[in-house]
Amino acid sequence: MTTPLSITSGRYSDGRPRLTAAGEIDMSNSGVLARALDETPGPVVVDLTSVEYLDSAGLSVLFAHAARLELIAPPLLEPVLTVSGLGDMATVRGPEPGGSPAPD
């Protein structure tokens, strides 16, 4: 059974691509995230503020693209990103005050 995950794509007003994930990222659906990242060229902002769970399969996908990622992570995911070492390879920041991931 696949865990619910939605990925939406967009762009900031400066043209940077943005992927917004919502739900849980695990081995049953990490391929959805991998495809979205594979189909988005260049540096990309990945908004994880609505992700409630991230397992090693999801981390593996993020590691594969780490050099070009800026991750927006909620406090819930910060320990996972830090302990895994992903925070040393990709830019990781929290959401903007007021809940907005970043200005468009």
Rank of each mutant, 00 (worst) to 15 (best):
M1I: 07
A36W: 14
R68H: 09
S28G: 12
V92T: 08
V46C: 13
V46L: 11
D55C: 09
D88F: 12
E70I: 02
A66E: 15
V51N: 14
T82C: 08
L77W: 00
V80Q: 03
T82V: 11
P17H: 05
V44L: 09
P43F: 13
I72F: 01
T82A: 15
L37A: 10
V46H: 02
V32S: 08
L77R: 00
S50P: 01
R93C: 03
S60G: 14
A90N: 04
T8D: 06
D26F: 05
L37D: 06
I25G: 01
D38T: 14
S56K: 04
L54C: 04
P103I: 15
A64G: 07
A90L: 08
V83C: 10
P97D: 08
G58E: 07
L33K: 02
P74R: 13
L86R: 14
G23Y: 00
R16H: 10
T20M: 04
G85N: 10
R16L: 13
N29L: 01
V51I: 08
M27H: 11
L77Y: 00
L69T: 05
G58A: 09
V83G: 03
D26E: 11
S9N: 04
E52Y: 05
A34C: 04
A21S: 02
P74M: 07
G98V: 01
S56V: 11
N29T: 04
A57Y: 06
R93T: 00
V61K: 10
I25N: 06
S56W: 03
G94M: 13
V92D: 02
Y53I: 00
D38G: 15
G31E: 14
G98R: 02
A22G: 03
L48I: 01
V44E: 11
N29G: 01
P17C: 02
G85I: 11
L19Y: 13
V61D: 06
E78G: 01
P103W: 15
A90V: 02
D55K: 04
T82K: 10
E96S: 12
G87V: 00
Y53C: 03
M89K: 12
T20C: 09
T91Q: 09
L54K: 06
G99A: 10
G42Q: 09
A34L: 05
G15A: 09
P43C: 10
P4T: 05
L86E: 06
A34Q: 09
S100E: 11
S30W: 04
R68I: 07
T2D: 03
A73N: 13
P101R: 00
G99Q: 14
T82S: 14
L54S: 08
E39K: 04
Y53H: 13
V51A: 03
T8Q: 08
A57I: 03
E70M: 03
A73V: 00
D55T: 06
R18D: 05
L5Y: 07
S60W: 00
D104V: 10
V46A: 14
E39D: 13
R93I: 07
L76S: 08
G98A: 00
